[in-house]
């Protein structure tokens, strides 16, 4: 699915990722944890193709060289990023936005555009999955949404676009316990043999629900430790300092 080899990324000559390696196979859920400033969000944006980074290294995604692709081409190839800070789009309804995006993605994948009726049916179905009130569908994208509603909207969009690899960038931050459970259950329902998730988080809470197959610790631009879900528990208990000491 995804193979990252020796990935470096810098902004204004300041190195952030410093030789990162990561491999994700179909059906797997990976979690990346790490202290603030370790490069977690940078990793997600470098994978999604945000402009402004100076990137070196190799990233293969389902046989394609990911770093050669424009952001929309990565989306067509099946990569999705749930943003930590989703933007607002005034005057553009969620419905309109999703219809444009989904038909574009379908078109690129060789599928025909959906009939209006079919589209609405799918949309209602996916909204229910994350308990997003249908009234949000006719509202402008993220405009006036609370933090939790924005995050739920991200997962709703993810469900609509049905990606092969979904990156969740601190989707749990700013969520109360109930919202966290709803989001986690939504993701859980979308898990399949042929798709994968990369979950970036500070906290164990989300991982309690998602039960990742593999947990990585990202520190100073590199993955310094990889383990199973017990690693997350260990981090919860001990923090990152013991690893830092070991690492240095």
């Amino acid at each position: 699915m995804l193979e990252i080899i020796d990935l470096h990324a810098s902004v204004d000559d300041k190195p952030i990722l410093k030789g990162l390696n990561l491999q994700i196979r179909p059906g797997e859920v990976h979690a990346i944890m790490g202290p603030n400033g370790s490069g977690k969000s940078t990793l997600s944006h470098v994978l999604a193709g945000r402009p402004g980074y100076d990137v070196r290294g190799s990233v293969r995604f389902n046989g394609q060289d990911l770093l050669d692709l424009a952001p929309e081409e990565r989306a067509w190839a099946g990569l999705f990023l749930a943003f930590q800070y989703p933007v607002e789009i005034p005057g553009v309804s969620n419905t309109n936005f999703m219809r444009s995006a989904l038909n574009q993605v379908r078109n690129q994948r060789g599928l025909s555009a959906l009939e209006a009726g079919d589209f609405l049916k799918i949309m209602r179905e996916k909204a229910a999955l994350v308990q997003l009130d249908p009234s949000f569908l006719s509202r402008p994208v993220n405009l006036g949404f609370s933090g939790g509603e924005k995050k739920r909207n991200e997962i709703f969009q993810m469900a609509m676009l049905d990606p092969r690899l979904a990156i969740l960038d601190e989707t749990d931050s700013g969520l109360d316990i109930d919202a966290l459970r709803i989001v986690a259950e939504g993701v859980q329902k979308l898990r399949r043999e042929d798709n994968s998730f990369l979950v970036i988080t500070h906290y164990q809470r989300l991982l309690d629900h998602l039960k990742p197959d593999i947990v990585h610790v990202l520190m100073d631009g590199k993955i310094i430790r990889t383990g199973d879900h017990t690693l997350a528990l260990e981090l919860e208990e001990k923090g990152y300092d013991w690893l830092k000491a070991k690492f240095v």
């Binding site: 989306a75 005034p90 005057g91 553009v92 936005f97 995006a101 574009q104």
Partner: peptide, 22 residues
């Protein structure tokens, strides 16, 4: 970037944003 990440090419994204604005 947000629109592109959802699969909209730049030009379509701009049309969408401008029409929303107006």
């Amino acid at each position: 970037y947000y629109c592109q990440q959802r699969g909209l090419p730049t030009e379509e994204a701009i049309a969408l944003i401008v029409n929303g604005y107006a």
